[in-house]
Amino acid sequence: METLSPLGPHTVIADGDRPKSWSSLARARSGYGADATKRLIDIVGRCVERAVELQDVLTARPGKEQLRTVGVPVLSASGAVHAVHVWVGPVGATPPARRGVFAWDWDADAELAYQGPGLEAAIHGLDPADQKVERTASENFRSIVRFDDRVGYLDLCANVHGGGAWQGEITFLGEGNGLHQLQMIAKASTPGRSKVIHGLFHEISDIRPPGPMVEMSALRAVARASGDGVALVALEAALMYDWLAPPAPPLDLWVRERPQVHHDDRTVLRDACQRILADGISQEISFRVRFDADWLRADAVLTRVSDDIAPHGLLLVRPSATDH
């Protein structure tokens, strides 16, 4: 069950290996009776509060055998519970192996993703020494070779304040362990002044073997042939989230690091996105960034490439002839 909104409602997003769409636990386990369902909901709530594995024993119906319930939390990078593996069965039975479910968070203000325990090893295929807790959007998106309803997810990112939710599937290319087919769950939240999306990845490669998205592979090949850095930009969020081709050195660090933008240039990209949303005219911009070193000037051209629910642009980036 996902518990992305701490106060609920909490919903079933997978029943065993079968993905579900925000389903009711009462519907998923109606055969055990109303009292059993209430106890299952209770164990989920206690797992969220205590962030530890819990067990309980219950009687589904008068005269029936006793059942054991088990709740195992799925923790985020901050230790919050984003989901709970729930199992119910005869007291003497052994629960099946848990599905691969991993938590993540996206901070829209910091433009950083925070990877929950186990995610980097299972999905990225990285050894402990190479694993990260924080990743930029481009670091994650460059490994996605297929993204069903990408537009719907980016619309959620652009409108975090609306508190919406999204569910879909992606095909992810791990650096050390090949392709993964993932059920992806996301809910927007606005705690305090922060704009955050809480999410889950559920590994479903065993039931839906992944296949690469030829269109994205072709698009990346064309982008690399251009000679410039080429980034996809979600225009409404002014978010550069995927490098289709890396920029030339010394800006090539941008592919794996989020640079500091000069304080005088922080609104340059956002202003260009707003102008292109208003009139569709390509925008030439220049701004300064740095990666723990000297300021580097980047020259760029922003072009609108889609007019759908989450309009997109391509940003062609190259080091400026003047680096001040």
Rank of each mutant, 00 (worst) to 15 (best):
A36H: 08
S30G: 05
C47L: 03
S21C: 13
K38L: 15
Q66T: 14
D15G: 08
L54R: 00
I41M: 08
R61V: 12
L75E: 03
D17Q: 12
G16W: 01
E65Q: 14
A36E: 01
Q55R: 10
R61Q: 14
V70R: 05
D56P: 01
Y32M: 07
T37A: 08
L40Y: 04
T37D: 09
T37K: 02
P62K: 08
L25R: 01
V57F: 05
S24Y: 10
E65I: 11
L54T: 03
E49D: 14
R39P: 06
L58M: 14
G71R: 00
I43S: 01
V48H: 00
A60G: 12
V74W: 01
E49T: 10
T69F: 02
C47R: 00
K64V: 09
S21H: 15
G33Q: 07
V70A: 09
R29D: 13
L40A: 15
S24T: 08
D35N: 11
G16T: 04
V70H: 00
S23N: 10
V57I: 11
G45I: 04
I41G: 07
I41V: 14
I43G: 06
R29P: 06
A28Q: 14
R68G: 01
G63K: 07
L54P: 02
R29E: 13
C47N: 00
A28H: 04
L40I: 04
Q55H: 13
D15R: 15
R46A: 14
V74N: 00
D35R: 08
I43Q: 02
R29Y: 11
E53Y: 04
V44C: 03
G33A: 09
S24I: 01
T69N: 02
D42Q: 08
K64G: 13
A34Q: 13
S24D: 13
E65C: 10
A34H: 11
T69L: 09
G71H: 05
T37G: 14
A36M: 05
R61H: 11
R27M: 12
D35P: 03
S23Q: 13
W22K: 11
Q66R: 13
Y32P: 06
G45F: 01
A28N: 06
L75K: 04
A60H: 05
V44I: 11
C47P: 06
W22I: 10
L40H: 06
C47D: 02
A51M: 03
S24F: 12
L58Y: 07
I13F: 11
D17R: 09
V74T: 03
V57C: 06
V57Q: 11
S23H: 11
L54M: 05
P62I: 07
L75D: 01
K64L: 12
L54V: 05
A28T: 13
V44Y: 05
